[in-house]
Simulated assay, not measured.
Amino acid sequence: MSGCIKNRYDFVVYFDVENGNPNGDPDAGNMPRVDPETGYGLVTDVCLKRKIRNYVETVKEGEPGFEIYIKDGVPLNTSDFRAFEELNVDPKDVKKLKKDDPQLDLKLRDFMCRAFYDVRTFGAVMTTFMKNGLNCGQVRGPVQLTFARSVDPIIPQEVTITRVAITTEADAEKKGTEMGRKYVVPYALYRCEGFVSANLARKTTGFSDDDLSLLWEAIINMFEHDHSAARGKMAVRSLVVFKHDSELGNAPSYKLFDAVSVKRKEGIEYPRSFADYGDVEVDESVCGDGVELIRML
């Protein structure tokens, strides 16, 4: 594996949805998430990280160093215990072990970073396994994402559906179909912003250049292996990356983000496809002085 990244990165992702629910809100009957004051659609960072995790798990299945810590059906403590086994640590002897090796907590944390890609990338809270005070620590990851927000306000639609498969035999004697509902967004283009800290990668997780390349690949393809009827047609449309030539960066993130924009074409009131928008534009005057623009997509 290559060494830790040496450069800070800031990036902007545009993705869209057509006739689907990109991120249901459990507090609102699984309706698409909406900012109630403005009507703009929202997709949580947790949702997007799940897509990235799923992609990495798919393409790196069984490869050492690319396991996923937060995954369906695997308790966190089960993964935590992997570190104890690796270092031959018996939780019953934690007081003696910590006295003999003051760096034990760091060794447990470092193993988790080496073994699990999402810990190395996004960080994790691994303090739930606390027998006699022993745990794998808390890691702040070098890669962070914001909530995605739609470029224009959205109007979710509630669609009534029917099915011929009746739930119970008693109901089957009374009716031939059952009714249901699903929510869709006819079309929306979303924007997410992200940060990659070389400083945290060096100090904490060891996030490497190879990990970074995999991150860009996963972002670009995060919907390609995650299609479902509920989410409709989703695709990443643009990935704009700003590479700083130093570990701590050469320009404020907000100035770089403000330089990236996309607008509806003239005469389009209700966008129904990505073609209804113009190109993703970048004001390249923010570059230079140690900042390089890279259009990944």
Rank of each mutant, 00 (worst) to 15 (best):
E217W: 03
V164K: 15
K255H: 12
E86W: 13
A275H: 05
K182N: 06
F122D: 00
Y190G: 02
L76W: 01
R191M: 08
P75T: 12
P36E: 02
K255T: 11
T58F: 14
T44C: 00
Y55Q: 14
F274N: 03
L134M: 14
S261I: 10
A115I: 04
V159C: 06
M222I: 07
I294A: 08
G123Y: 04
C113L: 15
D16R: 02
Q138S: 08
V291W: 01
R120H: 09
K98A: 14
V56S: 08
A172S: 13
Y40M: 09
K99T: 14
N77G: 13
V159L: 11
D93A: 08
D279M: 09
G290I: 06
K49Y: 06
C4Y: 10
V46L: 06
L48V: 04
E217Q: 13
L215Q: 01
A148G: 02
D45M: 01
Y55M: 14
Y270K: 13
F207Y: 14
D45H: 01
P32K: 00
V43W: 00
I155P: 01
G65A: 02
L214G: 08
K99E: 14
S246Q: 06
D93L: 05
F84Q: 07
Y270C: 06
G278K: 00
P91K: 04
E57P: 15
Y277P: 05
G137P: 10
A28W: 07
L97K: 07
T121K: 05
R50G: 06
S285C: 06
G73Y: 07
K51C: 10
M130L: 13
T58E: 14
V260T: 06
R120Q: 07
L239A: 08
E269R: 07
E61W: 10
D35M: 05
D289A: 12
A201H: 10
Y14H: 05
V185R: 04
Y117D: 01
Y190E: 01
L87I: 14
R191I: 04
N23R: 03
M179Q: 10
K174A: 12
F84A: 08
K92H: 15
A170N: 14
T121C: 13
N54D: 14
R114Y: 04
Q157N: 09
L134N: 08
D105K: 12
F11W: 10
I154Q: 01
E85G: 14
I294G: 12
V185S: 04
N54R: 13
Y69M: 09
V43K: 00
G278S: 03
V125P: 03
V59I: 15
F195R: 11
V17L: 03
T127Y: 01
M1Q: 09
L189G: 01
V56P: 09
R53C: 13
A229Q: 08
A259H: 05
R272C: 03
L108R: 03
R191H: 05
D101L: 09
D101I: 09
V13Q: 06
P32A: 00
T58H: 14
D110A: 15
V56L: 09
K107I: 07
S150R: 03
P36D: 01
F195H: 12
T38F: 04
